[in-house]
Design a protein around this nucleic acid. Structure first.
Lengths: 120, 120
DNA sequence: CAGTATCCAAAGGGATACTG
DNA sequence: CAGTATCCCTTTGGATACTG
């Protein structure tokens, strides 16, 4: 079985890029966090417990760290006379992700339609 | 914290659709199988062990079953005088998935560029 | 409030032997 | 050849108590 691929190097890069993106979105909470940051613009650590119901602090910490490491979210500190408040926001770069999520959503909708039509 | 969403029903559907798609692609082997079927057009059970190196028969069985349940692949049997051969193929509907995968790939590439540029 | 630390349960996946 | 069955390990995520 010979491969039908011309340039294996480029193919491999694309393969890794795909894996990257899937790893990034696959966590149980990751895209949920992104969606919420999209709607609310900025959120504090405690806010996530309200909007992403069921997440635990340990998991939240690790998910936020991952997203930050991938430059999708960033921490901002607002200094006030009495206290400093840390907020999480989407980065500019993360805006690109809406296109991705919409594509996934459209496929999901059409796939569901397809699956259901087979059942009926 | 009040939601900034008008039509919660539609939002929920889109959310579920997103989850569907992610679940579908998240498995370690799922999109690998789809890619291979795309390149080779049809594959037998045994062929997958050659092209998706490292997959075990148990896992392969379950991944194929899932993909078939979602109408992304289908089984065809070719009847010959001596024996019947079962092939797996992509369904017509699965063609849509290339658009999805390409979007994920493009994002992965641009994300990697973004992450690397932060490191330098 | 913003996390850490600890312990635990469930799921995903790997290796391999077996069956029709 | 096309799968099943079995056993085991690692990863992921959940509950909760604790700390600066």
């Amino acid at each position: 079985m010979k491969p039908c691929i011309e340039d294996e190097r480029i193919l491999k890069q694309r393969f890794l890029a795909l894996r990257d993106t899937l790893d990034l979105l696959s966590g149980k909470w990751r895209f949920c966090i992104l969606l919420n940051l999209h709607y609310y613009e900025k959120l504090r650590f405690k806010d996530f417990f309200e909007v992403s119901k069921g997440i635990s602090p340990k998991v939240l910490t690790s998910e936020l760290a991952t997203l930050e490491a991938h430059s999708l979210i960033e921490k901002n500190i607002e200094f006030t006379p009495t206290k400093d408040i840390t907020y999480y926001r989407l980065t500019k770069h993360a805006q690109e992700i809406w296109h991705v999520l919409n594509t996934l959503i459209e496929f999901g909708l059409s796939n569901r339609k397809e699956v259901i039509s087979k059942l009926i």
